[in-house]
Amino acid sequence: MNKQIILLADDDRDDIEMFCEALEEVNENIICECAANGDQAWRLLNEMNEKPQLIFLDINMPIANGWECLQLIKNDSRYKDIPVIMISTSSHKNDMDKASQLGSLGYFVKPNDFNDLKYTLNVITSNLGNGLREAVMNLQSKGSKYIFHL
């Protein structure tokens, strides 16, 4: 099977490590490209030979935050169709509304439990492409307290 690419932008090394470890355990065909802030994510996106199938952006990062990076992505014809899921430690409705207004597919509250993270990432990565929107909706409708379809 062909490798698929996910771009993760997060400034928390522990969160990146847990995310990548969970991804590796649920789908060995996923390559996770990581950036420490929105500016680095934008530069990495422009340098990639192949577009990622999905982008996860942490809201609060130094230099350029997730909101700024999301706006750059959604305003660029080369990248606007790449699904983006905003990630954060908080589940503030205002942040979810802002993510929706800026074009994010979903909002992912970082779980503390590794198995919860693995489960959510397994569902998401098993449905990259046309089934992603429905998979995120299904996670939310099944009572996930971590992911929200926008």
Rank of each mutant, 00 (worst) to 15 (best):
Tyr107Ala: 08
Asn112Asp: 11
Asn130Cys: 10
Lys110Tyr: 14
Leu45Thr: 06
Gln53His: 11
Gln40Ala: 14
Glu25Phe: 01
Ser126Gln: 13
Ile59Asp: 00
Asn46Glu: 10
Met86Val: 08
Met96Lys: 13
Leu70Tyr: 07
Val109Pro: 09
Ser126Lys: 12
Tyr79Ser: 04
Ser126Arg: 11
Val109Thr: 15
Gly131Trp: 03
Asn65Gln: 03
Ala64Leu: 13
Ala99Arg: 11
Ala64Gln: 05
Arg43Asn: 09
Asp113Trp: 13
Glu25Ser: 02
Asn127Asp: 08
Leu70Ala: 04
Ser126Asn: 15
Arg78Lys: 15
Lys118Gln: 09
Cys69Thr: 15
Trp67Ile: 05
Asn122Pro: 00
Thr120Ala: 10
Ser91Asn: 15
Gly129Lys: 05
Val26Ile: 07
Lys110Phe: 05
Asp97Glu: 12
Leu117Thr: 09
Leu121Ala: 01
Val109Asn: 14
Cys32Lys: 08
Leu70Asp: 03
Leu23His: 03
Lys93Gln: 04
Ser90Tyr: 08
Ile30Tyr: 02
Arg133Gln: 11
Cys34Phe: 06
Phe56Glu: 04
Asp116Phe: 05
Ala41Gln: 06
Asn46Trp: 02
Ile63Val: 13
Leu70His: 03
Glu50Lys: 15
Asp39Asn: 15
Ile30Ala: 14
Gly38Phe: 01
Cys20Gly: 11
Ile63Met: 06
Leu117Tyr: 04
Ile63Thr: 06
Asp58Ser: 15
His92Tyr: 13
Lys98His: 10
Cys69Gly: 07
Ile82Lys: 08
Cys20Ala: 12
Met96Glu: 03
Asn94Ser: 14
Ile87Trp: 01
His92Met: 13
